[in-house]
Amino acid sequence: MRHRLLAVFFACLVLLAPALAAAETDVAGVWRGSLYGSNLQAVVEQDGNAVKAQVVVSALTGETNVYHVVGAIFNGHLYMLHGSGHIFEGDAKGNELTGVLTTKGGSKVELRAVRTP
């Protein structure tokens, strides 16, 4: 039930986005960071306030996991949701993105990523 409510919330944000902001912080591009020693790479696409990304997590063991996330950005504040219930909320400033990933189990992990050329 919680996941459906979050999905409806994000859908409403995306639908209302054109009316809320004409120019938004640009987060499109390739972002890199790390999570518990694993490398993260996110390829982010943006259409106004609507944002989607493919996040690839490469572990030190060689294992690779791919996550597809969707969300919205308002005044540089980014909200992203994965279908399993993971939620990222953070702020984009220039070529740096910082925030907190809340896993479906409720654990909170601070993340930092930088945009790569």
Rank of each mutant, 00 (worst) to 15 (best):
L5P: 03
F10Y: 10
F10K: 07
V14S: 10
L15S: 15
L15F: 13
L15A: 15
L16W: 04
A17L: 09
A17N: 09
A19Y: 09
A19G: 12
L20G: 07
A21F: 02
A21E: 11
A21I: 02
E24W: 01
E24S: 13
E24M: 06
G29F: 04
W31H: 06
W31F: 03
R32G: 03
S34N: 08
S34I: 03
L35W: 07
L35C: 04
G37C: 09
N39V: 07
N39Q: 13
L40M: 12
L40W: 09
Q41M: 10
A42P: 04
V43Q: 09
E45I: 12
E45V: 14
Q46I: 02
Q46Y: 03
D47Y: 05
D47A: 13
G48W: 02
V51L: 02
V51M: 03
A53R: 04
Q54K: 10
V57E: 07
S58W: 07
A59H: 15
A59R: 14
G62I: 08
E63S: 14
T64H: 11
T64A: 15
N65L: 12
Y67M: 15
V69K: 03
V70I: 10
V70M: 10
V70G: 10
I73R: 00
F74T: 01
N75F: 09
N75E: 11
L78H: 01
M80K: 02
M80V: 05
H82Y: 11
H82G: 13
S84C: 07
G85N: 09
G85R: 04
H86T: 05
I87L: 08
I87A: 00
I87F: 00
F88H: 01
E89Q: 14
E89I: 12
G90T: 02
D91M: 01
A92L: 02
K93L: 04
N95S: 13
E96I: 02
E96K: 09
L97W: 00
V100P: 04
L101I: 10
T102W: 05
T102V: 12
T102Q: 09
G106D: 09
L111S: 06
L111M: 11
A113Q: 05
P117E: 13
P117Y: 11
